[in-house]
Computed example of a mutant assay.
Amino acid sequence: MRGRSLRIILFLMVAVTLSALVYGYAFSNNDSFVGSSIDEQFPVPAEARKSDVPFSNPGVVYVRYNMKGVEEAESIPDFYEDEIRKWGWKEDKEEKVGALRVFVKDGKTMNITTHTGFFTLFTKKSSGEPHKAVAGSPRAAVSKPQSAPEK
């Protein structure tokens, strides 16, 4: 009788542990992404929550997302960086400065900066011409000087 009780308890413990693992994996948002609020073609982890932070540069579209696990020093988490690439964005490594990363796709540029507990996305407002990189932090964003087109 006692051996049977131990087997039942052991079975229940294994079942509860496996259920917790399956539930955690199934509802992990590390594999769920949505288009960002400023460009539907740029992915944002579904777990990230848009926050209303005012930004006063009229030439820049800016959004801040709160997300646990984001650290300025570690930059973009690997799972997120992989997804950005899967969505067709390529990093412009020459534009990387500190926590600022710049990605380009189809003539558009998306800037991302990481901070502890949140990240920001920003780009120049569209004026019918392709987006250009925005240099510096979003608080001091200015257009990067562009060289004259070749003739």
Rank of each mutant, 00 (worst) to 15 (best):
V61Y: 04
S137Q: 00
K105V: 03
I112L: 12
W89N: 03
R139G: 00
T116R: 12
T120Y: 00
T114P: 04
P43T: 03
M67L: 15
K151H: 06
N66C: 05
Q41M: 06
F103D: 02
P77I: 03
K90H: 12
E150I: 07
A133F: 01
S36R: 04
K124A: 00
H131D: 15
A148K: 05
T17R: 05
V53K: 13
W89I: 05
Y62T: 00
R64A: 04
T123V: 03
K125Q: 04
F55V: 02
S75D: 10
M1S: 14
K124I: 00
I76K: 03
G136I: 00
N111Q: 02
Y80V: 14
S5T: 11
K108D: 15
A73E: 14
I9T: 08
D82W: 13
V142Q: 00
T116S: 12
K151Q: 11
V70S: 12
T123S: 12
Y65R: 01
T120W: 00
R101M: 04
G3L: 12
Y23I: 11
G128E: 08
W87G: 10
E129H: 05
A141R: 01
F42E: 07
S51K: 10
T113H: 01
S75G: 14
A141W: 01
Y65W: 04
V53S: 10
D39C: 02
K108G: 09
S5D: 13
R7M: 08
